[in-house]
Amino acid sequence: MGRKYSKSNLPTKICPVCQRPFEWRKKWETCWDEVKYCSERCRRRRSTAQSPE
């Protein structure tokens, strides 16, 4: 069994709260499309993020 992602080529997203890039993690394997925040801290601070509207 091969890996779906190699460590040198992991997908990334930008956190809407801290504006920092974060990479895919094994624990997000089944829910990567729903992941929006880089950490629990940013998820709790989401109200401070500017809405795109």
Results as ranks from 00 to 15, higher is better:
Met1Cys: 06
Met1Ser: 13
Gly2Ile: 09
Gly2Lys: 13
Gly2Asp: 10
Gly2Phe: 10
Arg3Asn: 09
Arg3Pro: 00
Arg3Ala: 13
Arg3Leu: 11
Arg3Asp: 12
Lys4Leu: 12
Lys4Trp: 02
Tyr5Phe: 15
Tyr5Asn: 13
Tyr5Met: 12
Tyr5Ser: 04
Tyr5Gln: 13
Ser6Ile: 05
Ser6Trp: 12
Ser6Lys: 15
Lys7Pro: 00
Lys7Phe: 10
Lys7Val: 03
Lys7Ala: 10
Ser8Glu: 13
Ser8Ala: 14
Ser8Ile: 02
Ser8Met: 07
Ser8Thr: 04
Asn9Tyr: 06
Leu10His: 02
Leu10Ser: 01
Leu10Arg: 12
Pro11Phe: 01
Pro11Met: 01
Pro11Arg: 05
Pro11Trp: 00
Thr12Ile: 07
Lys13Thr: 06
Lys13Phe: 07
Lys13Cys: 02
Ile14Phe: 06
Ile14Cys: 09
Ile14Ala: 08
Cys15Lys: 01
Cys15Pro: 03
Cys15Tyr: 00
Val17Gln: 03
Cys18Ala: 06
Gln19Ile: 00
Gln19Cys: 04
Arg20Gly: 00
Arg20Gln: 14
Arg20His: 12
Pro21Asn: 14
Pro21Met: 13
Pro21Ser: 15
Phe22Ala: 03
Phe22Thr: 02
Phe22Leu: 01
Glu23Ser: 15
Glu23Ile: 01
Trp24Cys: 04
Trp24Val: 07
Arg25Glu: 13
Arg25Phe: 05
Arg25Val: 03
Lys26Tyr: 08
Lys26Arg: 13
Lys26Gln: 14
Lys26Asp: 10
Lys27Met: 10
Trp28Gly: 01
Trp28Ile: 00
Glu29Pro: 00
Glu29Arg: 15
Glu29Cys: 06
Glu29Gln: 14
Glu29Thr: 04
Glu29Met: 09
Thr30Trp: 09
Thr30Gly: 10
Thr30Phe: 10
Trp32Gly: 07
Asp33Glu: 11
Asp33Thr: 10
Asp33Gly: 08
Asp33Ser: 14
Glu34Val: 01
Val35Cys: 02
Val35Gly: 02
Val35Gln: 04
Lys36Cys: 11
Tyr37Asp: 02
Tyr37His: 11
Ser39His: 08
Ser39Arg: 04
Glu40Ser: 11
Arg41Gln: 09
Cys42Thr: 06
Cys42Phe: 05
Cys42Pro: 04
Cys42Met: 02
Cys42Ser: 06
Arg43Cys: 12
Arg43His: 14
Arg43Glu: 11
Arg43Phe: 14
Arg43Asp: 04
Arg44His: 12
Arg44Trp: 07
Arg44Leu: 11
Arg44Lys: 14
Arg45Ile: 01
Arg45Ser: 13
Arg45Ala: 15
Arg46Ile: 02
Arg46Gly: 03
Arg46Ala: 11
Arg46Thr: 03
Ser47Val: 04
Ser47Lys: 10
Ser47Phe: 02
Ser47Met: 01
Thr48Ile: 05
Thr48Tyr: 10
Ala49Leu: 03
Gln50Phe: 00
Gln50Glu: 12
Gln50Asp: 03
Ser51Phe: 03
Ser51Lys: 09
Ser51Glu: 06
Ser51Gly: 01
Ser51Trp: 02
Ser51Cys: 05
Pro52Phe: 12
Pro52His: 15
Glu53Cys: 07
Glu53Lys: 13
Glu53His: 11
